[in-house]
């Protein structure tokens, strides 16, 4: 199988509101990702994006996003109605073909436009769950309670995850929320949907991100130390919350196995956990131990622009490899309520 690497990553700093339409998000972030390695759109073999129409609440928002690109002469282009990390997966598959050597992947998400927890109810089963109005925080809260009942974690454990991510975010200029917060302060917060409190949930952010992939020698020419995708896999599980063991992630476990996470020491992992307790589930599922630094960026708990958060995990993990501060990194993205669908990749330096 052909070698493919992440060679560039760019993101717009996450914040509560970015006053920009789709092209105004896409143009600067894609241009920056290409410029960093001296490329223009003309050098790109395949372009793929990830987004959802339900964030802006209107159809075909990805068509508007194409207006942020130079698309002349016409380009090879595709779009997934999923997180941008899944667009990266499609681009990886496309590069395996061997006829083109580079791909641009981008995604954009503005949570400032609509009531995101309620919007996510539209992902639920339209017969049995949507009419009940199950919001995303309450769905995750059922999972958190199940963990407590199964004695897999305590509320204090959740708070500790949040504190560490917030602390890590201090060093991340692109994070949306960061800075000092202690466990006791979190445990004193009122419940939103018990046992979840505000700081155990990710913020809602606006952002955009772009990644450039390159194959083989092209990657080596573009950067000194490409972040090679040594394994990548994604798996889903049953949709109904009542048909899953919510305290574990069978799909993340399987995807990690297929991606070869345990084949070597993992220096750093960027996990897409929009709720603190989900980081604990993911670490267990992927077998990430004490030797692995988790979410040096602050993760989704520091910035969460839907549909972009997963791609940013890939970009952040790759950045550590590109810069030489890590030899082996894991990147993860999730989709659906309570970690239904998980994508895992192993990135390595030469």
């Amino acid at each position: 199988m052909r070698e493919v690497a992440i060679v560039s990553f760019s993101q717009l700093p996450s914040s509560k509101v970015i006053h920009a339409d789709e092209p105004e998000l896409v143009q600067p972030v894609t241009a920056a990702a290409m410029e960093q390695i001296g490329l223009t759109q003309d050098d790109i073999g395949f372009t793929c994006s990830g987004s959802t129409d339900y964030l802006p609440g209107r159809p075909f928002s990805f068509v508007a996003a194409v207006d942020g690109l130079k698309a002349w002469p016409p380009i090879r282009e595709s779009h997934v109605e999923m997180d941008g990390a899944f667009a990266l997966y499609e681009a990886w598959v496309r590069l395996l073909h061997g006829d083109i050597d580079t791909a641009l992947v981008f995604s954009f998400g503005r949570c400032s436009l609509g009531p995101v927890p309620e919007v996510l109810n539209v992902q639920n089963d339209p017969y049995y769950v949507q009419p009940l109005g199950l919001d995303a925080i309450s769905a995750a809260a059922l999972q958190a309670r199940a963990m407590i009942d199964a004695r897999k974690a305590t509320e204090r454990d959740f708070a500790e995850v949040a504190v560490r991510n917030r602390q890590n975010a201090v060093r991340n200029p692109n994070a949306h929320v960061k800075g000092p917060l202690d466990v006791e302060a979190i445990l004193a917060e009122p419940y939103i949907s018990s046992p979840l409190r505000k700081s155990l949930c990710s913020p809602l952010s606006d952002s955009a991100a772009a990644v450039v992939l390159a194959a083989g020698d092209t990657a080596r020419k573009l950067v000194e130390r490409p972040a090679w995708i040594r394994g990548i896999d994604h798996r889903t599980e049953p949709h109904a919350l009542g048909q899953r063991d919510l305290t574990a992630s069978a799909s993340a476990k399987l995807a990690a196995e297929k991606a070869g996470v345990r084949k070597g020491k993992v220096d750093v992992a960027e996990l897409h956990a929009p709720f603190a307790h989900q980081e604990i589930i993911l670490r267990e599922a992927m077998g990430l131990g004490e030797g692995t630094e988790i979410n040096p960026s602050g993760g989704a708990l520091a910035a969460n622009s839907l549909m972009t958060t997963g791609l940013i995990r890939f970009g952040e993990a790759a950045s550590r490899v590109l810069s030489g501060s890590a030899d082996r990194a894991v990147a993860h993205a999730t989709s659906g309520a309570c970690l239904q669908h998980n994508l895992v990749a192993v990135l390595e330096g030469e």
């Binding site: 959802t52 997934v80 999923m82 889903t236 049953p238 949709h239 659906g336």
Partner: peptide
């Protein structure tokens, strides 16, 4: 009126434990 319906339809399509992928290009 179902956002990202591959999540909901994964059971009907026997996709549990497998990859399911959703494309949208108008």
């Amino acid at each position: 009126g179902v956002m990202m319906p591959e999540l909901w339809l994964s059971d009907a399509l026997g996709a549990s434990g497998k990859p399911i992928f959703r494309v949208h290009t108008a």
